[in-house]
Amino acid sequence: MLEARLEQSSVLKKVVDAIKDLVQDCNFDCNDSGIQLQAMDNSHVALVAMHLKTEGFALYRCDRNIALGINLVSLQKVLRAAQNEDVMTLKAEDSPDALSLVFENSENDRISEYDLKLMDIDQEHLGIPETEYGATVKMPSAEFQRICRDLSLLSESVAIEATKEGIKFSCTGDIGKGAVTLRQNPNVEKPELGTTIELQEPVALTFSLKYLVNFCKASGLSNTVTISLSNEVPLLIEYEMEHGYVRFYLAPKIGD
């Protein structure tokens, strides 16, 4: 059986908020390394991979591998009943038809108990090879979100170019064009506010802004985001948590 306790409900609430517009039904795979999820969007253009490691749980017990087939819209309805600071306990039998969620406030005088019906989801997993990326950019997640939102008002697509001068996001649309260039600017006192660029080789790729704006819903998970790019392979965007991560992969666009 599974028994997993999070000190703060906000962790799972933020993860579900971050991915629910990309995928609808997915398996939460529970095993002795924690809770993992991998799912593609319906169009097979984007993929989300999530891992909540056992170290991030106040209590974690999972005797055998359990797949929790969850509709994320339904899960979000139940999670609305949890306050951010509540302790959350997830429980499931070995072959469960429901997931039990218990929310307890810090004063220990309120216990909320919910059951979420599970579904059988036949989900295939993709093998994602270890990749040496041509460019890796670490920047404040709020700034990346702002750039994607601003450019999405002008165009459907953004060209991302990483060179030794910096990383340039540019787009062209019906009303005009726009570009934002970030130069390497490490912040010694507050590293989470700085921008660092590791460049092995120049990279130039084009991506759909609709998906990037969607990924930015994970900005609440981390102050920083890591963007990894190589020519002619999918983009990797990672939001690292204290004990886990949410990663998004996005296939590129080619030509005009």
Binding site: H44, E124, G127, A251, K253, I254
Partner: peptide
């Protein structure tokens, strides 16, 4: 604008 590739052109099903 442009041709959108899909992920299965890069990653294989396990």
């Amino acid at each position: 604008t442009g041709h959108q590739f899909i992920l299965t052109e890069y990653f294989c099903f396990l």
